[in-house]
Computed example of a mutant assay.
Amino acid sequence: MDKGNIILLNGVSSSGKSTLSKELTKILPNYYHLSIDDFDIVIERMEDRENDRLIPVPTEYFFHRTIAMFSDKGVNLIVDQILHDSFTTEDCYKTLKDYPVLFVGVQCPIEELERREMQRGDRRIGQGKQQLEYVHKSEVYDIVVDTYKDSLEHCAKNIAQLIQTQELPQKWAVNCFVPEI
């Protein structure tokens, strides 16, 4: 069985990853959306935060292995996540290095991030700006989209066109420096 393709959307909070994922599932109906935000909810439900009974492993560790599990069964995924620190980045690359991944950078200007944070009301203002201190610094993407400059439909069509016209290698070619874990 061939591994399922993975479209991995990386961008800071409020950059448009989740909305873009939903747009992509309209164009690519044989792909399923998996979000780190949704996965966080599962982990939170397992934990007892009031009594400080927490799972002592970063959520991303389980998330990356779940992505691999779906791909191993031939399921195509659109994944939205934030590679926000060295552990998350290194674990993602290490876990998915033998998988067919299209690596997408999702960007938009800081002013727009802050406007979206205020509009949504469920994010700390400045969270996206703070994450930019790490995100997009060393990654080499297969494609970069700007969800402010271009419509979500345009961004999704560009990504879909790339995935439909090029065969993804069965092994992710990680083109950026990732220190050993």
Score class of each variant (00 low, 15 high):
4 G>T: 09
5 N>R: 11
7 I>Q: 10
10 N>P: 07
14 S>W: 10
17 K>Q: 12
18 S>Y: 13
25 T>A: 09
26 K>I: 08
32 Y>V: 08
33 H>E: 01
40 D>E: 11
40 D>G: 05
41 I>M: 03
42 V>H: 00
45 R>M: 07
50 E>R: 06
52 D>G: 02
52 D>H: 07
56 P>D: 09
62 F>A: 06
64 H>M: 10
65 R>Y: 04
65 R>N: 10
66 T>Q: 13
69 M>Q: 13
73 K>R: 01
73 K>P: 02
73 K>E: 06
79 V>P: 03
82 I>T: 09
88 T>H: 02
89 T>F: 15
90 E>P: 04
91 D>S: 14
92 C>Q: 04
100 P>C: 08
100 P>G: 11
102 L>M: 12
103 F>C: 12
104 V>S: 14
106 V>E: 05
111 E>G: 05
115 R>V: 11
117 E>A: 10
120 R>P: 07
126 G>I: 03
126 G>Y: 08
127 Q>L: 12
130 Q>H: 09
133 E>Y: 04
133 E>D: 09
139 E>V: 04
139 E>K: 06
140 V>N: 10
142 D>S: 04
146 D>R: 00
150 D>R: 00
155 C>R: 04
166 Q>G: 05
166 Q>I: 05
168 L>F: 08
168 L>D: 07
168 L>R: 12
171 K>I: 06
174 V>Q: 09
179 P>W: 02
